[in-house]
Design a protein around this nucleic acid. Structure first.
Lengths: 147, 147
DNA sequence: CTTCGTGCAAAATTTTTGCACGAAG
DNA sequence: CTTCGTGCAAAAATTTTGCACGAAG
């Protein structure tokens, strides 16, 4: 599992506070996000949810994703190739590094993002509220086993 | 004009080297990219080109954009809200800062991108070949005149 | 019992493709 | 003259919407 069980409970609580109904579909979709470190896309979540609830419709996935995104419980990640994927485990801006060969996505640790933002804010006069940082390259494993 | 006239000539030369035909549509689409600092999207380029060549089709714009992208003469920028836009003036990875109120996009100067990449490469063992960095916030002008 | 969320189908977008004609070289 | 690129229309892919029924509370 990618998250503490806690996280699921907390989101359910927030749904309740909003007077949103707790349906099996919503739970399943939410779990699909929380249990995956693969930064899945809509289609991928849909297929995952369908294994347990075969009648779930794509429309419901879209609607639930919109809801969770609006609540800030999942973060949309625009991949450089145009794919739209989501991060349900760290739903706040953070850098990603993507292997262009095998597709793996990591959330690297770094102390430099704040420095970068501070410098750009300083140079432009912008107040920066959010960001999106994607690095593309080759992962260590693909470096060792070239295709 | 956003670029030196030079740039247009150079791209045309590269098209020729590839044995691609130099058509008025291609020139018009290319100019639309080179003459704009607004990081336009497909639809915006289409509308721009249509003012001079009303019969130009959207399919041609898509095809030409694919060609120029493949040649590395324009760079696709995935905006955080999912928009796909392009930069024809600096077709290499560089950071953008976007005002979420008025939509203005700047290419800020910074010396910190290399530092950030170096640290992440170091921490993950990836070889980094490209990147995409978008900062979102409020521009100085919108800070002064809140909506 | 009273909404709200779902599933379905239709619609609206967005992007891609096939093909015949006209243009570039 | 010989491709190649264009425009058109159709197709495919993606996302949104309207609505009636069933489920949550």
């Amino acid at each position: 599992m990618a998250t503490t069980p806690d996280r699921l409970e907390k989101v359910i609580l927030r749904l309740r506070e909003r007077n949103c109904r707790i349906t099996p579909q919503r739970i399943a979709i939410l779990k699909a996000f929380l249990d995956s470190n693969e930064h899945p896309g809509i289609e991928q979540v849909y297929r995952q949810v369908q294994t347990r609830f075969p009648t779930t419709s794509l429309a419901t996935v879209y609607k639930t994703v919109a809801l969770l995104k609006e609540m800030g419980e999942i973060l949309e990640i625009g991949f450089p190739d145009g794919q739209k994927r989501f991060d349900g485990n760290k739903p706040f801006p953070h850098p990603h590094i993507i292997c262009e060969h095998c597709g793996v996505v990591l959330d690297p640790d770094t102390s430099q993002v704040d420095t970068l933002i501070a410098e750009i804010a300083d140079n432009t006069g912008f107040k920066v509220t959010s960001h999106q940082i994607q690095l593309i390259g080759t992962c260590p494993s693909c470096l060792k086993n070239p295709f």
